[in-house]
Structure formats: C-alpha cells, structure tokens
Design a binder for these strands. Sequence first.
DNA 1: TCTGGGGTCCTAGGACCC
DNA 2: TCTGGGGTCCTAGGACCC
Length: 383
Amino acid sequence: MTAPPRRIAHLDMDAFYASVELLRYPELRGQPVVIGGRSTQPPTTAADGSRRYARLADYKGRGVITTSTYEARALGVFSAMGMMKAARLAPAAILLPADFDAYRHYSRLFKAAVAAIAPQIEDRGIDEIYIDLTELPEDSLALARRIKQAVRDTTGLSCSIGIAPNKLLAKICSDLDKPDGITLLAMADVPARIWPLPVRKINGIGPKATERLAALGIATIADLAAADPAVLRRHFGPGYGTWLHDAARGLDERPVVTSSEPKSISRETTFERDLHPRQDRAVLAEIFTDLCERVAGDLRRKGYAGRTVGIKLRYDDFHTVTRDHTLAAAVADAAAIRRAAGECLKRAPLDKRLRLLGVRVGALERPDETPAPATPAQGELPL
DNA sequence: TCTGGGGTCCTAGGACCC
DNA sequence: TCTGGGGTCCTAGGACCC
C-alpha cells in the first residue's frame, strides 16, 4: 500500500509590505515605491490634503531595501539591496518607512482567512504559509481560487499560490505566476516545468551553493538532476549532497508543521557610524544595555527564559564573530542577561571599530512549565 | 557610495562521561 | 595500562530564509 499523493499549497503574499502601504496611500498605485531605511520619515500631509513623499534620492545612511513594488523592481531595485545603490538606479522612486505593526496586523488577517477554509497551516514568516490540502474534498483549482478570494475580501491584498505534491515544489510553483497567480503541478510535470529553471529557484540553494554548482557546470535544475550523486556528495558533503540530488528530482517528504516553539530570541542594531570599543565606550555600553532590556522585554512578553546568552559583533570590515555563555539556570531579566552578555564580551576581540552589536538568548524554556521529569513514565520499565 | 534585523539548521571540534 | 567507541553538551561559524 502506498499513501496517496499529498496536496501541499504554498501561499505567498504579493510584494506584501509595499502592497499594505498602497492600501494606505492608494494614489501611489502604479508608481515605483520602496520600503526601508531606519530614519525614513513618513509622508507629510498639507492643508489641502495633498501628501509629500520622500524620494529615494533624498536618503542618506546605511539602510537596505525591505520591499519594493513591481514597478520599482522593473528598475532593478530589489529586497536587501543597499539604499544608496538603489538611489542611483531609481532616484525618483517614492520612499516609505516600514510599519511592522501594520504588516503584522494584515498578516494575522490573511492567515485567519485561510485557516477558515484550510486549517492545516505552517507559518513561514509574516507573508507566506504552507497549507496541507490533502484531506479536503474540493479539487485544487477550486480551493486555490476560494483561498485567494478570501484573502482579497479580508485584506484587499493579492497573493500567489502554488499547489504540488510537496513543500519544495509548491514553493517553486507559487513564484512561477506572480503576482496574483495560481500554479498547479504534478510529479509528471517536473521535467517540463521545473528542470528548465536555474538551481537558485530551489529553496535551500543560496548564493554560495549556486556559485559552487556553477563551477561544476551545473546551472539549471535539469543539470543538477543529471549530476552524479556521488560527485555532489563529494563536493557538498553527504547530507547536503544527497539533498541536492533529491531536490532536483522534486523529492521532498517534509511534513507541514502546524505548531512550533521559538529556539532563540535576539535583538541587534547597526550603528549610524562605526563605534570604537574604547573611544565610544560610554555610548556602546548604553546600546548594549538597551539591547539586553529589549531582549528581556521580548522574553517576558512571550513567556520564555533561556539558558544560553550570546552576543554578536560585526566589525567595520564586516567580519562577524559570536560568543556564547551557557548558565546553570534559565534567565529572563535584563540584569542577568546583561551580566552573562558582559562575560561573552570579555572573550571577543575589541581592537577594531564596530558596526553592529547584538544580544541573543537561546536554549529557551517556558519558566511556568515544569521541565520533563527525569524519572521514567508510569508503566515504563526503568532500563 | 556597498551590505538590516530576526530567525533556523548544519557542521565540526573539544570536553566529559560511560 | 592501553585502546576503542559512543553519546551528549557546549561553542563558533556559516549558509540560508523571510
């Protein structure tokens, strides 16, 4: 007996942050708009109701683009691009600050709308989800249309959906007909629809792996599927090499995971200008304490404590180091985090200017829950 | 004009224990 | 005394994702 094929959907909101901003500023529809920049000012409204927007050309600082509208992408401006570089490509583009409270609000709305139709949902961040449709009676196209309509009705926003036998393929599919698209794919379609794509389209193949594959003459997913798995394992290690070979053939057994606990909570900040550990000691100490307080606030709000406290330093040459310190018992208060983080700092090189400082708490526990008992459960033999 | 912030997972080595 | 091996925890770095 073989199990029937699964039906897994991947839903991706279209240019999510930018689209939320267009709900607020509808007159910007059709224009190149980018979101980003820490010091970006929101638009000002004149007495006659007209708004004045910041332009990308006005920006000064070390921010990156968070999202851009499709019109801005057409000018070569994409997520994670440095703002100063983007300003050269599209100086007249409208610049808006990120409003994460608004995005979280719309995120909750669209997920609730989907859950009312298909409750088996895996959260993949603020703007995308996997949905397991296997147990639902309707056909896939009807479900995809109904879900898209529900998302549009409750948020005014569009999304793209891919439906395939697993998460790997569903994720690739949701990107094939963007924006506002639906793509259905069966295993038999993999050679025609998936193999012509570049390897970078596979979720889990990033810039480094793409480059190393290119050096082996592997550019498309078809190239990867045709590659000798032994060669892949030799170059990429047994785990990743085997995964690459499977992924290229569209194989993926990962389940849709409908609930999970966080593993770590962190806060970090990149300074407006690089700071020297000695000359700028006082201001660095203040930022350090503030980061610890913000992490403590996040822990308290979410109901966690953690045993491992860590720091992250990024130097002016972008070299990054981390230091960890594991305590005997989990902590959640700012003073204890600050003490442990201070111990970490003593073990890090402090002779170069810093551009970033971060504080993290891991090995999380819920302090209100009793840890699992070490004694065997009832009816179990103490072997 | 370089390169944000919040995460997860994997690897690898050393310590320590059995 | 020497040798061997497995398991777990901790630390550091790196790739990758949204």
